[in-house]
Each structure stands twice: as structure tokens, then as C-alpha cells.
């Protein structure tokens, strides 16, 4: 896997466009998933994901092949998302950050309601907490890998994730999501 990735990176550095396509296709899900969860908006997430890959391919020489590629790539994605969030704070967007619920089936509605509440709760977190939480619970990365992505000690990552969980739980309790009658 790692050797294959190194070979792919070498081909990308040589200007092989098919290798670039392969590299983007391999990691597009993870990068876009993180960007979408961080930004909560499809178009913004797509822009951030695209910018992530462009920067990664242009700066592929700076990747140390002795280390994992994924944390390096997700670190770029995290930086892009934080930049987008800072830009959004300067110029608030008028569009809704939550996709509208179109279905009316009770179970589906309850599930989407819960997902939306979690989504909204995540958006209230500090970007570092949110990124650490998503990398752990959604990308299922280890604390060491997250520390590599966020370039901070493992203890800091653990603290951020614990705080993120507590804040999310507090937020869900405050929104009375816990008391929902719909069994999901």
C-alpha cells in the first residue's frame, strides 16, 4: 500500500496526469468528507477539497515518503477548511448550511432530524475540536495519526476530543434531542 503510494507519488511528480487522477480518486472521499463535515456546505466543501488536492499535488515534493500520506493530505484539508471558516466569519453566507429535509416518513424524518441536530451541534464547536472529533469518530483515525494531522501532542488531541464530546452532548441535551420520542 505504502510502496504503491510512493510509486504513485513519483509518477505524479514526473507529471503523469493519470497518476494524478488515480491519487485524487483514491482520497477524494476522505478529503471531501472531512471538508463537508467541517464546513457543513456542499459547494464550500467541494471548493476546499479541490484546493486541497491542488495544493497537495503542487507541493508533493514536501511530503516525506517515510511517513503516511493520509495525515499529510488531511492536514492540508484541515488548513483549507479553517481558512474557509475564517473567510466565512468575515463574510457571513446567506445560504443555509443544512440541506432541506424532503422526506416525510416518520423514521426517516427522525433520523434526518437527529443528523441535522448533530450537524448543527458540530458547527458550534471550535474548528480544532471539530476536526479532531471528526477525524476520530468519522475517519476512525488513531490519536497518533490525528496528532500528526493537527501537528500537536497526542494529549492535546485527547483533550480536544473529550471537550468536543462533552460540548456536543451538552448541546444535544439543551436542544432536547435526547428526549426525542422517535426511536432511531
Amino acid at each position: 500500500m505504502t510502496d504503491n503510494l510512493r510509486h504513485l507519488a513519483r509518477r505524479c511528480l514526473a507529471g503523469d496526469q493519470r497518476a494524478m487522477l488515480e491519487l485524487v480518486d483514491r482520497f477524494r472521499g476522505q478529503v471531501f468528507g472531512l471538508c463537508y463535515r467541517m464546513l457543513g456546505h456542499r459547494e464550500d466543501a467541494e471548493d476546499a477539497a479541490q484546493e486541497t488536492f491542488v495544493r497537495a499535488l503542487r507541493n508533493l515534493r514536501s511530503w516525506d515518503p517515510s511517513r503516511d500520506f493520509e495525515p499529510w493530505l488531511l492536514a492540508i484539508a484541515g488548513n483549507r477548511c479553517r481558512t474557509a471558516l475564517a473567510r466565512r466569519m468575515r463574510r457571513p453566507s446567506v445560504c443555509s448550511l443544512v440541506e432541506p429535509v424532503a422526506e416525510h416518513r416518520p423514521d426517516l424524518h427522525a433520523a434526518r432530524h437527529l443528523a441535522e441536530e448533530v450537524h448543527l451541534a458540530l458547527n458550534t464547536l471550535r474548528p480544532q475540536y471539530r476536526q479532531a472529533f471528526l477525524l476520530f469518530h468519522e475517519q476512525e483515525m488513531s490519536y497518533a495519526a490525528i496528532a500528526d494531522v493537527l501537528q500537536c501532542p497526542i494529549g492535546t488531541v485527547r483533550t480536544w476530543i473529550h471537550r468536543a464530546r462533552r460540548e456536543l452532548i451538552r448541546r444535544l441535551q439543551k436542544r432536547e434531542v435526547v428526549e426525542s420520542r422517535h426511536a432511531v
Partner: peptide, 23 residues
């Protein structure tokens, strides 16, 4: 509920030409 909500969250799909646009 939080863990369940994370699982339930849907992820929109990227366009097929995403990689081509990047390249």
C-alpha cells in the same frame, strides 16, 4: 444519540469529473 447521529449523517457525492478538474 450523538454516535448514532454521526452514523446517520449523509455525505453528498462529488461529481464524477472532480478529479479531472483538479488535474
Amino acid at each position: 444519540r450523538l454516535l448514532r447521529g454521526i452514523q446517520l449523517r449523509e455525505l453528498p457525492t462529488l461529481d464524477d469529473d472532480f478529479a479531472a478538474r483538479v488535474v
